[in-house]
Design a protein around this nucleic acid. Structure first.
Length: 257
DNA sequence: ATGTCGGAATTATTCCGA
């Protein structure tokens, strides 16, 4: 089966582009972030018409996460417990034999902004919630936009980026707590030395200049990691398609046995 | 050039967040 994560940057503005991607890549199970739509305005029928079950946790204007699946979705949790004030950023469901969670981690804005410590707290809450609700021996995926650059190789700035927002020791430590709970970064497991990115700023021609970051991850427990056949970042879908504007994030896809 | 997007608030223009 093919699983994926993708920050779509507005599900309504991106709808035709997303459909092109679904038709082209034929994923089985997908986490979307940044829906930017109220629950009642989400285009459920558009995805159902393509053969997907779909469940969301959303809010008007920004944030919002969704799960699309060819198999039925049984939602377990909407919202990160205790962190609801920071917006609609987590949804967990059971899909077949898999526990599937997708998250949109707060951006943090800058290291001296009030949102920055809130981001660190949110990450710590996510780790606590994961530890309390999952076991390391189950088949579980935690995917999404983490807004953290785990290592210098994941930034176009390399180690020169260390200390900037997304690249701080505190954010990296928050991410390391998650991987310490038995979650493996599936792309990095498969490609230890690949300096690929998943996000490029719309501004300043960042994509064409190679100014990107790898901040979107498919994390999986050991049993998921052992099923991985291939993982890739779908860079082509960061480009315009049929005149349609892309998200500023590329999808990340894994093929599982 | 902090140079682009998407959405909200408000009525085509400005703001906010990313």
């Amino acid at each position: 089966m093919k699983i994926a994560t993708w920050n779509v940057n507005g599900v309504r503005a991106r709808l035709d582009f997303i459909k092109l991607w679904l038709e082209s890549r034929q994923p089985d199970l997908v986490g979307f972030q940044e829906l930017k739509v109220a629950d009642e305005d989400f285009p459920f029928d558009e995805f159902r018409a393509l053969g997907f079950d779909v469940e969301i946790h959303a809010q008007k204007g920004w944030n919002g996460v969704a799960i699309l699946s060819r198999q039925p979705i049984a939602v377990e949790t909407r919202g990160l417990p205790g962190e609801e004030d920071l917006g609609a950023r987590l949804i967990t469901a059971r899909v077949g034999d898999l526990s599937f969670t997708t998250v949109y981690v707060p951006n943090g804005k800058d290291t001296d902004h009030d949102d920055f410590p809130a981001k660190l707290t949110w990450l710590a809450s996510l780790a606590n919630h994961w530890q309390a609700s999952r076991s390391a021996d189950e088949a579980a995926v935690l995917c999404g936009d983490f807004n953290v650059v785990p290592q210098p190789i994941d930034s176009w700035r390399g180690s020169a980026g260390d200390g900037r927002v997304f690249h701080t020791p505190e954010e990296r430590a928050g991410f390391t707590v998650l991987t310490g709970l038995g979650l493996f970064d599936l792309f990095r497991e498969q490609h230890p030395d690949d300096p690929s990115f998943s996000w490029w700023d719309y501004r300043g021609g960042a994509f064409h200049r190679g100014h990107g970051l790898r901040i979107d991850f498919l994390l999986g427990t050991a049993s998921v990691r052992d099923r991985v056949r291939e993982v890739w970042i779908d860079r082509d879908f960061r480009k315009k398609q049929d005149g349609l504007t892309a998200s500023d994030h590329a999808p990340v896809i894994a093929e599982l046995d």
